[in-house]
Amino acid sequence: MEAQSAHSKIYMKPVGFLDNPQYFDEQNSRLNNSLMWFSQIECTTIDEGKSARALVPVEQWPQLLEKMVEPLAERATALFANLTRPHAPLQCGERVIRFDQPHVMGILNRTPDSFSDGGKHAGKNGSDPQAAIDAAFNMATAGASIIDIGGESTRPGAEAVWEGDEIKRVVPVIEKLTHCGAAISVDTRKAAVMEAAIAAGAHIINDISALLHDKRSLEVAGVSGKPVVLMHAPSSGKDPHKGNGYGNVVTETFDWLEQRIADVVEAGFEREKIIVDPGLGFGKSLADNLALMNNLAMFHALGQPLLIGASRKRMIGALSKEAPVDQRLGGSIALALHAIQQGAQIVRVHDVPETVQAAQVWRGMRDAGVTARV
């Protein structure tokens, strides 16, 4: 790795994942407390717009660190610590979410205009919650660890929903699901909806604006003590897809999330209760989304559990002869499995039984690899 100046910025991505880590003592490190062990680190340094990359074996990391100038060495040390630090479990009512294995989050839209399943769970005239309740119980029975309930579509071009209507859509469902066996997440960017959902029994706040859309959201989330998902989007305004494009979508998204985590923690929020989401599809082109998917492992250096939501998104259609939304199961599972293989702790999906099955098969193979004796 070439010598860098004190003004360089470094990014680290764990690579070289091993099937049988026990055969390579001191040549690998565990990725957080997951079932993944990495043997190399892909280091990228950027200085005055110029980037340099190096592939560093884990056992040579201490020697490389000694050669780095400050404050580059200090930052590199912190990033490596983030890669290897275990994530604390989240207490979500009766459910404990542990991050030693991947979890499936089931998507439950109570909206008439969501891009994938608009109206499916809205009920008669949008007022009867029973269809949504039944769907949620089916997801929990199928193995979803978390049910994510939303009352406002955030697809491109969607109209904003009054918070009162959003509350009417999500609260009756949450009230019925508090003992379904899964953690309940509310997908909203409005403080009033967060308050109502938490009062109804929600355990997690999932905000696509990272608590920026509503001025009260940060306070509400902090006072609640609930875990929160901070997602990257190019805008926290009415249209979360509005942006000016990216020079490097991976590093810019990483930097944005890193700063947002720091701001939320500085405001008094518990760092152990923050989950991050790079926001696939939000103001990002196909090339941007592919770059993020190919570099998901880099986001572990933020030090937080990682959530990926790629289910049925437009990138699948773009890569598969414009397959319509209801014919994207194969692509959705492929993206979910790729995320899991990059260490993502949560995958947010529409097709819960199929994704749970795929994750269980992956888990079986990982267990066999970790415990294998030849």
Rank of each mutant, 00 (worst) to 15 (best):
M1F: 10
Q4M: 12
S8Y: 04
M12Y: 00
P14G: 08
P14C: 07
G16W: 11
N20G: 00
Y23F: 15
F24V: 11
L31E: 04
N32Q: 14
L35N: 03
I41H: 00
T45F: 12
S51D: 08
A52N: 13
P57H: 03
L65E: 15
E66K: 15
A78I: 14
A81K: 15
R85N: 13
P86C: 13
C92A: 14
H103Q: 11
G106T: 07
D128R: 06
A131L: 12
N138R: 15
M139G: 08
G143I: 06
I147N: 09
T154M: 00
P156M: 00
A158E: 00
R169T: 13
K176N: 13
L177A: 01
S185P: 00
A192V: 06
A192H: 10
A196H: 02
A196D: 03
I198L: 14
A200Y: 04
G201S: 08
A202I: 10
S209D: 07
L212M: 15
D214R: 06
K226L: 09
V228F: 01
V229Y: 01
M231Y: 06
D239G: 02
G243Y: 08
N248D: 15
V249P: 12
V250E: 05
W256P: 04
Q259D: 10
R260Q: 07
I261C: 11
V264Y: 04
A267C: 09
G268D: 05
I274D: 04
I275K: 04
V276I: 15
V276W: 01
D277K: 02
D277I: 06
L286K: 13
L290D: 02
L296G: 10
A297L: 07
H300R: 12
H300F: 10
G303E: 04
L306Y: 02
L306T: 02
I316N: 05
A318N: 06
L319Y: 03
V325A: 13
Q327S: 12
R328S: 08
L329T: 11
S332P: 11
A344N: 04
V347A: 04
R348Y: 10
D351N: 13
V352T: 11
E354I: 03
W362Q: 14
W362Y: 15
R363T: 14
G369H: 08
R373C: 13
